[in-house]
Design a binder for these strands. Structure first.
Length: 496
RNA sequence: GAGCCGGUAGCUCAGCGGUAGAGCAGUGGCCUUUUAAGCCAUUGGUCGUGGGUUCGAUUCCCACCCGGCUCACCA
């Protein structure tokens, strides 16, 4: 796929010649700035009863064209839909021949009256038209009839690299990506209606914390220092909480320096929220309400299906202790994880690869990932996570090896992560020290020791429940999509 | 990082040792309510890149690039 302007391409040449002709007639399409439309295209269909016989102005891209001598039919397309237009030579005079200078993909504005053709299609009978912009490169619009389409843009690489073409040409892609926009919008609306305030916190951070992941490094010239791109929103949102904003959230891009896969893009969108005076169970209920509300508002249903499994977000989610879930699906008991040695043995038996840096808690989470997650098809909260992998969560009072943390699973995939947040600055300091030890033992993703954050917490942080949701993965499950790239407008690609 | 599959015209694809094909799009012609419009004619390709084998390579071999899937790494 060449990135230069290939004027030698005959298809481009033809279009450039047409552009030249238009310009020589004083009809430069690129000189046009505005076209006063009276209706989006879909509105003509919706309001046909009242619009029949009325004059309207509409605009869109030429999606198809059928010239039949002295009469021409074409379809325009805009964000809302498509509309047929009809042009007659004996009414348009010399201007009729300008149609020869049109190509698929050109932007056209027309004025005319609304009618129904002999075959019943709602159409605008054009009296005046203006070419509003030209496509000098061929746009691969498909042929279509009803729901059937031919010669569609299929090449996955091209669909991702040139998403504008994918959006233009493939209705499924458009639907899926627009669904993403509406999901984000409805999440905001829901949280605001629950009294949460949206804030924006730094992307450039001295020390990226709040999650276990390697950061991207960048450099600030004037300050002559490195910064890290954030890997989570957590620590700054907690500072806001300490600042007295009791219900706070952020929807923002985070960056993790990892491999790319069907489920991982180096930059992705997180929702995090914190609610003072709320605990883990309150957050569970909030998650249930969030999914139910967004599902209803965006899709008009709470029932979703993926790979033949049906889930219903109008129902409460199952709640299960992590160790109980492990017992249920592997037969292992807590005793099997008493010591690092036993835990490693148990995991190896399940075919899980253990590394030197793994802790008992790390191994437990691996077992969850490899052997349990796939069974959690119905919406499930798995709670009570090991303390080693949860340095920012409160300890369980009667079980100090575990924390007040849950992960939400749907269709076997993790979609939410939440805790009763640790707000004891003395314990937080100890937890950071433990993480430091892990880091020194070779765990690059151990949580960094953030003195500034500790300082903030020492002024007093309220008891609070916190939640993180990967928006991209939430969109995947609500749209039944297997690849994260399909729900990101411009997924990361190697240089092409 | 490993394995498998793929990259041929603007788009969708076929071809697979003898100097490249179809449909649609494009171009020219006929056609004043068509709709995958139709009919006739026609243009268009360094067959991902670079090496090698061969009289000859899109086709066989090697390396590389890009993509997809699976696994690994990774929330």
């Amino acid at each position: 796929m060449s990135r230069h302007f290939d004027e030698e391409n005959p298809l481009v040449q033809v279009r450039l010649e047409k552009l030249q002709k238009l310009r020589s007639m004083g009809l430069d399409p690129f000189a046009v700035e505005r076209y006063p439309i009276t209706h989006p295209l879909e509105a003509i269909h919706e309001q046909f009863e009242t619009l029949e016989g009325q004059t309207v102005c509409v605009a869109g891209r030429i999606f198809s064209i059928r010239q039949m001598g002295r009469a021409t039919f074409a379809h325009l397309m805009d964000t809302t839909g498509k509309l047929q237009i009809y042009l007659k030579a004996d009414e348009l005079g010399e201007r009729y021949s300008l149609i020869d200078l049109w190509d698929l993909g050109d932007y056209l504005g027309v004025k005319g009256f609304v009618f129904r053709t002999r075959t019943g299609e709602i159409t605008v009978h054009v009296q005046e038209f203006t070419l509003l912009a030209k496509a000098v490169r061929p746009v691969p619009f498909p042929k279509e009839k009803g729901e059937q389409r031919w010669f569609e843009l299929h090449d996955v690489e091209q669909r991702y690299r040139q998403r504008y073409l994918d959006l233009l040409v493939n209705p499924e892609s458009r639907r899926r990506l627009l669904a993403r926009c509406r999901i984000v919008s409805e999440i905001r609306r829901f949280l605001e209606s629950e009294g949460f305030i949206e804030v924006e916190t730094p992307v450039l951070q001295p020390m990226a914390g709040g999650a276990a992941a390697r950061p991207f490094i960048t450099y600030h010239n004037a300050l002559q220092r490195e910064f890290q791109l954030r890997i989570a929103l957590e620590l700054y949102l907690k500072r806001v909480l300490i600042g007295g904003i009791d219900k706070v959230f952020e929807i923002g891009r985070v960056f993790r320096n990892e491999g790319i896969s069907t489920r991982h893009n180096p930059e992705f969108t997180m929702l995090e929220l914190y609610q003072a005076y709320a605990n883990l169970e309150d957050i569970m209920e909030l998650v249930e309400r969030l999914f139910r509300t967004v599902a209803e508002r965006v899709f008009g249903t709470t029932v979703f299906e993926m790979h033949g499994v049906q889930v219903d977000f109008s129902q409460p989610w199952r709640r299960v202790r992590l160790m109980d879930a492990i017992h249920e699906y592997t037969g292992l008991t807590e005793a099997d994880f008493e010591t690092l040695e036993r835990a490693a043995q148990a995991a190896e038996k399940l075919g899980i690869h253990i590394e030197r840096k793994d802790t008992v808690g790390g191994i437990i989470e691996k077992v969850l990932e490899k052997c349990v997650a796939e069974h959690l098809q119905q919406p499930t909260f798995v709670y009570s996570f090991p303390i080693e992998t949860s340095p920012l969560a409160k300890r369980e009072p009667d079980n100090p090896r575990f924390t007040r943390r849950f992960e939400g699973y749907v269709f076997g995939k993790e979609v939410a992560n939440a805790f009763s947040e640790l707000n004891d600055p003395l314990e937080q300091r100890e937890r950071f020290e433990q993480q430091l030890a892990l880091r020194q033992a070779g765990d690059e993703e151990a949580h960094p020791y953030d003195e500034d954050f500790l300082h903030a917490m020492e002024y007093g942080m309220p008891p609070a429940g916190g939640l993180g949701i990967g928006i991209d993965r939430m969109v995947m499950l609500l749209t039944g999509t297997d690849s994260i790239r399909e729900v990101i407008f411009f997924p990361q690609m190697r240089e092409g």
